[in-house]
Computed example of a mutant assay.
Amino acid sequence: MRYLILGAGAVGGTIGGRLHQAGHDVVLVARGPHLAALRADGLRLTTPDGVHRLPVPAIGGPDEIALTADDVLVLAVKTQHSAALLDRWAPRPVAGGGTAAERLPVVCAQNGVANERLALRRFARVYGMCVWLPSTHLEPGRVSAAGSPRSGMLHLGRFPHGADEFARRMSADLTASYFDAPVSADVMAWKYAKLLSNLGNALEAVAGPIDGELRERVWRRVKAEGEAVLAAAGIGYPSEEEQRAKRGDRVAQVPLAGERRGGGSSWQSLARGTGDIEADYLNGEVVLLGRLHGVPTPLNEALQRLAAAFAREGRPAGSLPDAELAALAAG
């Protein structure tokens, strides 16, 4: 199989880079200065076992490659970019007949729970991937992955449910490429569990690390709102104990020499000045479910709005004053 990584940032760059290191056929899809750096110097992937310069082929879009039936599309962009990217790839012809939408699998290696539905509107074969992968992308051409002894844990399964031969084949490739990749017939349950932990992304992005009494108090309330809406919606997910037991000591985040993680994916969006952020599909998912099921979600709604304003206005990551955060919590 050839893996086309649609979005070669922190997650996509790590998955693509590790697959390439293990000898698999990989193409990275990127844009702008990141694409230019990948084409000029390859992918610089920093991991606990060193700094790797990887000559992974990189392209800017579907018009630069001829698709075959052995291709796998791995969607690794933020959710706000998913629909436009899927629309570019769906109508592309595949050797032997048919289109990408008809013949190729799409694997959603993303936070949130909306991507799979977006993909299934366009593609016949869609797979969810729950990504536990501590990684950072702040500079063009450079990605760091701090997981050890495995780079990440990637639960994989068919959407909306099920496990099949493709999932098992991809799991085997990932397992041989520095990941744990359990195949799950109910992968979305794992993604809803991850959604709860991702509700802190916007808080970290605007207010900095979640430590100290104020931030921890806000985080507990944000998460409690998420748990309440999932309960009201009848959505089940593995407990924190089950998640910890599954991860064990397989994906511990370790310091990387010369590298600074800084923060999670939303923090990185603000730090890079991308102009957008994924809060609409993390905290916003909780807000949506709350409105559907009559559960109030004031803090998630406030963080959704605030994170969007930070991205739109170019405010620095982690710069929300404590006084404003306290007022937010009191509102």
Rank of each mutant, 00 (worst) to 15 (best):
A330T: 02
A327I: 02
V56E: 11
A145H: 10
V143S: 00
G157V: 08
R103Y: 07
A302I: 08
S135T: 07
E165C: 11
S135C: 05
G147P: 06
R291Y: 04
G234T: 01
L133H: 02
S184D: 14
T46N: 01
R312M: 12
S239Q: 02
A257E: 13
R117T: 14
W219P: 03
G314T: 07
T274A: 10
S266M: 02
R158Y: 02
K78E: 04
L75D: 13
G162I: 00
R88N: 14
L73C: 08
H81E: 12
S269F: 06
G262R: 01
E278Q: 01
L292H: 13
P298Q: 09
L288C: 11
R305Y: 13
T136Q: 02
G152I: 04
A40P: 14
K78I: 02
A323E: 15
R88L: 13
H52L: 05
R18I: 11
G162Q: 04
G17Y: 08
E278L: 03
L35A: 09
A302K: 09
I5F: 13
D280Q: 10
A36F: 10
G16R: 15
V222H: 06
A330R: 12
S184V: 11
A100E: 08
P134R: 12
A84E: 11
R272Q: 11
A189I: 05
T274S: 14
G331T: 11
